[in-house]
Design a protein around this nucleic acid. Structure first.
Length: 112
DNA sequence: ATAATGACTTTCA
DNA sequence: TTGAAAGCCATTA
């Protein structure tokens, strides 16, 4: 409730993104592009990442289920992604060989 | 108002 | 398979 007033995000882009991220079922992951697309913002994958970056640590949005197109965790160009990985594994998501998640298996399949 | 930044994606070699 | 470049545009300073 702090930084919301800056741009009146009530009608902002972030709200939509969060709404979509919340729809990601447990044990599944979605890519930024996927979220953007479902949120009605095709091609704006980057903004999705910023929206998640703007989240508070105690947010109710399962941002941890959002990964990059390679199925790998991208958190501020490396860093705390390790914790993130544990969270995902805890939800049942398994990582592949190159520390990537097989999107064909764990990728979220939104209903068009 | 402009300028710089950035949890990305896709295409081509 | 990896690497480099262009595109997208909201947020922040």
């Amino acid at each position: 409730v702090t930084a919301r007033r800056s741009t009146g995000e009530s009608t902002g882009t972030y709200a939509r993104i969060y709404a979509v991220v919340r729809r990601i079922p447990r044990g599944r992951v979605a890519t930024y592009g996927q979220v953007a697309r479902v949120a009605g913002l095709p091609g704006r994958a980057r903004q999705v990442g910023y929206a998640l970056a703007a989240l508070k640590p105690s947010t109710a949005v399962p941002w941890q289920r959002v990964v990059n197109a390679a199925g790998a965790i991208s958190l501020r160009t490396s860093g705390g992604g390790v914790s993130q990985r544990l969270l995902l594994e805890r939800e049942g998501v398994r990582f592949g060989a190159a520390d990537r998640i097989p999107l064909e298996q764990f990728g979220w399949r939104p209903r068009r």
